[in-house]
């Protein structure tokens, strides 16, 4: 029953808890080891058993193949472009709205805030069809704008940044207001810089969301060269077949790099984001 013991600062961790945690960690990480080691094998040997979780050979041809035979650079470039544009655009939309919600008293503020917040709960499937029709009506079907525009609104982000702005003492901007600063200048010079930590948290959340998005590209993008990485990879699966599992996994390995970097450099913010959205949501 030691799992239920409570002392956090116990000198020794329980051995069996530790063993269990190692087993869990192995379960979580072994698929990645298999992906990477198989991506370095000869395609013919990709299914050779027993499986190995550490590279036994280094055939980087698989990686070259992915780039030479497919528009893989396009996939990566598209993903980067869309993700960055959305992350930046969303930060602007979000922080402007959060400023209004946290600092300006106006008619309908509470109602509007609640309506926007309820956007978090709306299931994706109930908006996708009209979204498709709007995108079609705007004439941006099969362009990256079809992925960018709908992603600019992020109700949870507005909520989080607003909460953060509320914790900034009003005395900062009131002083400026009395000095005759404009609302936009207060936003731009005072509140925006001060709420950067919360904006980073929201940006990282939306970065991961956009980078991994699969359903929107699936519905809105049909041209090969305009596809994003997740969609392009599923196409790769159809093309390569079993003979080239190594090559497919080379593509998969490449797609893991960005999330890994984000995790390494952004984990502090990811934790904060989870803390904010998890406990106060």
């Amino acid at each position: 029953m030691s799992l239920f013991s409570y002392k956090k600062n116990k000198k020794k961790s329980d051995a069996w808890v530790k063993i269990a945690m190692f087993l869990v960690a192995a379960f979580m990480l072994l698929p990645f080891c298999w992906i990477i080691s198989t991506s370095l094998r000869l395609p013919k040997e990709s299914f050779s058993l027993p499986p190995s979780f550490f590279p036994t050979s280094f055939h980087i041809e698989n990686y070259k193949r992915v780039f030479t035979e497919l528009p893989f650079f396009n996939f990566i470039f598209n993903s980067i472009k869309i993700t960055i544009v959305v992350t930046v655009g969303q930060s602007i939309v979000t922080s402007l709205a959060a400023y209004a919600f946290s600092r300006i008293k106006f008619k309908g503020r509470n109602v509007l805030f609640i309506i926007m917040l309820s956007g978090i709960m709306i299931p994706y499937q109930s908006t996708i069809i009209p979204k498709f029709l709007f995108v079609k009506a705007l004439g941006i079907m099969d362009t990256h704008l079809a992925l960018i525009l709908p992603a600019l609104i992020h109700p949870l982000g507005i909520f989080l940044v607003r909460q953060f702005m509320l914790t900034i003492p009003k005395s900062y901007d009131e002083a400026a207001y009395i000095d005759g600063a404009t609302r936009f200048r207060i936003y731009w010079n005072i509140l925006l810089p001060m709420s950067i930590p919360s904006i980073i948290v929201v940006s990282i959340m939306s970065f991961i969301m956009m980078w991994n998005d699969f359903m929107n590209p699936l519905i809105f993008i049909s041209t090969y060269e305009k596809m994003t990485l997740p969609l392009g990879l599923t196409v790769l699966k159809g093309y390569m077949g079993t003979g080239s599992v190594s090559a497919i996994l080379a593509g998969v390995s490449i797609s893991l790099i960005t999330p890994l970097l984000i995790y390494i450099f952004g984990q502090k913010y990811l934790m904060q984001g989870s803390a904010l959205s998890g406990i106060k949501g």
Binding site: V85, G89, I140, T143, H144, L145, I148, L149, L152, F184
Partner: peptide, 17 residues
């Protein structure tokens, strides 16, 4: 503010398209 919004919308648009 309006200008910023428009400029932003415009530049988002052009860079995307």
């Amino acid at each position: 503010v309006l200008a910023v919004v428009l400029a932003f919308a415009g530049c988002g648009g052009s860079s995307g398209n």
